[in-house]
């Protein structure tokens, strides 16, 4: 479902150009569990952002569900992100003034889902991440692990086929990190394609496939 062909991504910083992705060829099938590993600065986040359609490759072809998405315009990209991709960030990115339930609701508001359906789905999602008691709590009233579970519930609320996670446990202690990984793996069991960046060998090796990046190349 995810097919990357000869993907390059270069950044121009002043005089210098940084080759963050160097000729990436990669296919990820539906329902796969893939981890991306590699040293800092090797291009892991850049690769995930390209897959997430948050970043456009400098050259190469990316097709998602057999549709070439490298030429889509901004609105079309937003729509594909909305409908196909869930993203979990290392730094959570919850909106501080909204409650857990409201943060989870946001993608559905953007997608124009009617309000009754939203309420029902938020309740289900809170149950799935075991936070039904925390629905009205704001992020500053939740622990790091709870915040990340809200973020996962938000990423999954539109039932995307692909879940991307950039070091989802990077800012968590190992115990709550463990809980998050289990949650993600559970979703993978239900046929969600899971692509996760991690620095942790033990975590990375739990995936069906490990992609190792060094200096923007898959090794």
């Amino acid at each position: 479902m995810i097919e990357l062909e000869n993907i390059h991504r270069t950044f121009q910083v002043g005089e210098q150009s940084v080759h963050a992705l160097n000729n990436i060829n990669l296919t990820i099938n539906k329902g796969e569990y893939v981890s991306i590993m590699g040293p800092s600065g090797s291009g892991k986040s850049t690769l995930l952002n390209v897959i997430a359609l948050l970043d456009q490759p400098s050259s190469g072809i990316y097709s998602l569900n057999n549709q070439i998405v490298t030429q889509l315009d901004d609105n079309q990209l937003a729509q594909v992100r909305r409908e196909n991709i869930g993203f979990v960030f290392q730094f959570f990115h919850l909106i501080a003034r909204y409650s857990a339930a409201e943060n989870i609701e946001i993608p559905m508001i953007l997608a124009g889902v009617p309000i009754q359906e939203r309420k029902q789905r938020v309740a289900d999602a809170l149950l799935a991440v075991d936070l039904q008691q925390r629905a009205t709590h704001r992020p500053d009233q939740l622990s790091g692990g709870q915040i990340q579970r809200v973020a996962i519930a938000r990423a999954m609320i539109m039932q995307p086929q692909i879940l991307l996670a950039d070091e989802p446990t990077g800012n968590l202690d190992s115990k709550s990190g463990e809980g998050i990984i289990e949650l993600l793996e559970n979703l993978n069991q239900k046929q969600t394609t899971l692509v996760m960046i991690t620095h942790d060998e033990a975590l990375g090796s739990r995936a069906q496939r490990i992609i190792r990046l060094i200096d923007g190349k898959i090794v």
Binding site: A52, D74, A78, I106, P107, L110, A111
Partner: peptide, 8 residues
């Protein structure tokens, strides 16, 4: 918001 699918 843009990452979770908001258009410009």
């Amino acid at each position: 918001l843009r990452a979770v699918g908001a258009e410009r």
